[in-house]
Amino acid sequence: MLINCVVYENGTKLADIPVSQISEYASLPSCFVWVALRDASAQELAEVQEEFGLHPLAVEDAQHGHQRPKVEEYADSLFVVMHLLESGAAAGTSELSVGELDVFVGRNYVVSVRNRSDHGFVEVRERCEREPELLKNGPGFVLYALMDAVVDRYFPVIDAFEVELEDIEQRIFTKGSSRENIKQLYELKQRLTLLKHAVAPLLEGTSKLHGGRVPQICAGTQEYFRDVVDHLGRINSSIDAIRETIGTAIHVNLSMVTIEDNEVTKRFAAWAAIFAVCTAFAGIWGMNFEYMPELKWRYGYWAALGLIASLCGILYYRFRRAGWV
């Protein structure tokens, strides 16, 4: 569906226009058109493709969705794909939903297509309109504002991951919680991988927009894209640090599971040793030889029980002191 179709002239909003009038304003040298779409249909994409002459390969990627984050240059235009990560905390779940923002940028247009995401970019448009001096830079500045907004949404996600990891670390040495901790750590690692897949390719692509041969569309806004690259680099470093900590935590938890299993094994071994004494004496006196003096003794039964109980008590005392039982 169409969210907005607005024409800007010299950094100032001129008017909201229908898609059919885009060509009238796009031909003006001082104007550019910003079109925002959400879950666009093939027909809507075809309309804007015809109006702006979008590259068919870029339009095909936008139609199919589920693209890897990237920055691609087609002649005098850019096609940018970014992942939108939204936490399910509001719905009471820790899962991450992955949306997508596809942005077509040319000399006189910006087309943003949001897919599988409920969080819009109204604040980005308002920010751009509050800064006409910067908006004079044209579509390049709008692309920066959209990228900056997407990247800023990654910071709360990484903060939530760090808080969750700290909570798990506090429970690492709680007895009986190791297996549950390992499960939660693996789930956290999977969600962290989604963020890594969103950040790392975008960091590589955005680096092309501020250094070396910068596309003409981004001329004059390189320092802004450098700021985006800096933010992505910080997030990427945090992801690597969290992944390393998760790996260490998993090893520690596995060690705790082994230690707990060893404790159980020691208890079994201690009780087996105690009952082995009973079994040994019962086996000796159960052989039923005719000439066994203990069998004829009046107090033999009680003496045998006392001996067995005493030895078992001594073993229990020693094992207790050693922490085996």
Score class of each variant (00 low, 15 high):
N108K: 13
I259M: 14
G306Q: 04
N137S: 14
F225M: 04
V59S: 10
D61C: 04
E164P: 07
E100H: 09
P69W: 03
Q184G: 01
C5F: 08
I250T: 14
K266P: 00
V163G: 00
D148V: 11
G138S: 13
L295C: 04
F155K: 08
I242Y: 02
G120M: 05
I182Q: 03
A42S: 08
N181Y: 06
Y186F: 15
F52V: 05
F275E: 09
V111H: 07
C278I: 13
V142H: 00
A269E: 07
P293S: 13
A249H: 08
G233T: 14
E164M: 09
L2N: 03
A322L: 14
H231E: 12
G323Q: 07
E126Q: 15
S117W: 05
P18I: 09
G313M: 03
I22F: 05
Q190T: 12
F281D: 01
L57R: 10
W297V: 09
A89Y: 07
R68Y: 07
E60G: 02
N108H: 15
L203C: 05
L14E: 03
V6S: 10
S207N: 14
R213N: 12
C31S: 11
K296S: 14
A304S: 13
L311E: 01
T193I: 07
E204M: 12
Q67P: 07
Q67H: 09
F225P: 03
Y299W: 03
Q184A: 15
L295A: 06
L165K: 04
M287L: 13
M287H: 11
V33I: 13
S27D: 14
G53F: 10
R153D: 07
P29K: 09
R38G: 01
L185V: 04
L188E: 01
H231M: 11
F173Q: 04
D152Y: 11
E294F: 09
K208G: 04
S87A: 10
E44C: 02
L311T: 05
E164L: 08
A40F: 02
I314C: 13
L232W: 00
Y316H: 03
G99V: 07
M287T: 11
D159W: 01
V150Y: 06
N181H: 12
A241S: 15
S238R: 15
P215F: 14
L311G: 06
V35P: 04
H66E: 08
I259K: 10
F275A: 06
P215E: 13
G99N: 06
L185Q: 06
V113S: 03
V98D: 10
D76A: 15
D230W: 10
A304H: 01
N262F: 05
Q170I: 05
T93C: 06
Q43Y: 00
V80N: 03
A40V: 01
L57K: 05
V59C: 10
A272Q: 01
E9S: 14
G300T: 08
K189G: 07
D240R: 12
G247A: 14
G53M: 02
T258W: 00
V151R: 12
S117K: 02
V325L: 15
A200P: 00
C278V: 10
A309M: 12
P18Y: 15
S87I: 02
P293G: 15
L45V: 04
C312K: 03
G92P: 02
A75H: 14
W297C: 08
V7S: 04
R320M: 09
V105L: 13
L315Y: 00
H119C: 04
V113H: 09
G313A: 15
E60K: 13
E47W: 01
D61A: 02
L14A: 08
G140Q: 08
H55Y: 05
P18H: 12
D16A: 15
